[in-house]
């Protein structure tokens, strides 16, 4: 009995340790952002800072966070929408339409997953600059608007749909666009949500491409803006920098809390049922 109890105590101790490891830094982030300006340089630190928003105002003054937000919203909304449409159309075509050697074409498209971003960086910069898209929304969005992983997830999902429902609609004389819109997509809703959310997270967090394709402060997205804020503020004003970090992180954290199941399923999906 005592051995079992000891085991239980140890397990709970482990859980508390892991909890502290992950909640600690997050709490540090939010509490630092909400401190009064001078409080951040106190040691030992004040753990319950209250609700002060001067740091946010400071960050907003030091860097054009309004622009960063607008840019991030446009790039994320635009990019994720196109990605989702691309994933849907391609997946539907591969599952429900006939075409010679379509499975070969599918594999070729899937192969793009093997191309690392390092290899595409220089050439895409050259391509985008030849298109005249440097420092534009098109340049920020279009190179990332293709969908390979999302297409793959959706295709696998569509393959599991009951074929006779689609067949029945076809016999009724419905065209493919109507079948897709009224029959297939409603059945794919859970996977569409997953693919859409992953696309949103990817676009919002993207770093290296927005860094090289934009060259004025006003066109930066939030993650790059954060880098700008830090180099602007030096290492001095940690309160404002943490406030900026909260502005970058919070939208995705909220999204995660709202759609935890879809996100974990989508991101870990490739692992278990490979």
């Amino acid at each position: 009995m005592t051995a079992a109890r000891l085991r239980r105590v140890l397990l709970y101790a482990g859980l508390v340790a892991v909890g502290l490891l992950f909640i600690g830094p997050m709490y540090w982030l939010f509490s630092s952002a909400l401190k009064e300006s001078g409080d951040i340089y106190q040691f030992p630190p004040r753990w319950l800072p209250g609700w002060h928003f001067e740091n946010f105002a400071d960050a907003w003054r030091a860097a054009p966070f309004g622009d960063f937000f607008v840019n991030s919203l446009i790039v994320t909304a635009g990019g994720a929408t196109i990605k989702l449409v691309n994933a849907t159309l391609t997946a539907y075509a591969f599952v429900f339409l006939r075409f010679p050697y379509k499975n070969v074409i599918f594999l070729v498209m899937l192969g793009a997953l093997m191309v690392p971003n390092n290899v595409t960086l220089i050439v895409n910069y050259i391509t985008v600059s030849n298109l005249g898209w440097i420092n534009t929304y098109l340049g920020l969005i279009v190179p990332s608007a293709g969908s390979v992983f999302g297409m793959f997830l959706l295709r696998q999902y569509m393959l599991t749909l009951p074929g006779d429902v689609v067949e029945a609609a076809r016999v009724d004389g419905a065209g493919h666009l109507r079948i897709m819109w009224q029959v297939v997509l409603p059945m794919c809703k859970p996977m569409l949500v997953t693919v859409g959310i992953i696309a949103v997270v990817d676009m919002w967090n993207d770093f290296i491409w927005p860094l090289i394709v934009t060259n004025t402060v006003e066109m930066r997205t939030l993650p790059i803006g954060l880098l700008y804020l830090r180099s602007n503020e030096g290492y001095a004003n940690w309160g404002a920098i943490m406030a900026g970090t909260v502005m970058v992180a919070l939208p995705m954290l909220i999204l995660f809390l709202l759609a935890q199941r879809q996100i974990t399923r989508g991101l870990t999906g490739g692992a278990v049922k490979g």
């Binding site: 892991v18 992950f22 830094p25 982030l29 943490m242 992180a249 995660f256 809390l257 974990t264």
Partner: peptide, 30 residues
């Protein structure tokens, strides 16, 4: 705890790194 552990994975790497930069600050960090 599971939720808290997974959360950093979907936060921007730039934000996580900035947070850790402050955590690593020898004078005022965690």
């Amino acid at each position: 705890v599971r939720t808290a552990a997974f959360a950093p994975h979907i936060v921007s790497g730039a934000a996580v790194a900035t947070l850790w930069l402050f955590i690593f600050d020898p004078a005022y960090g965690l």
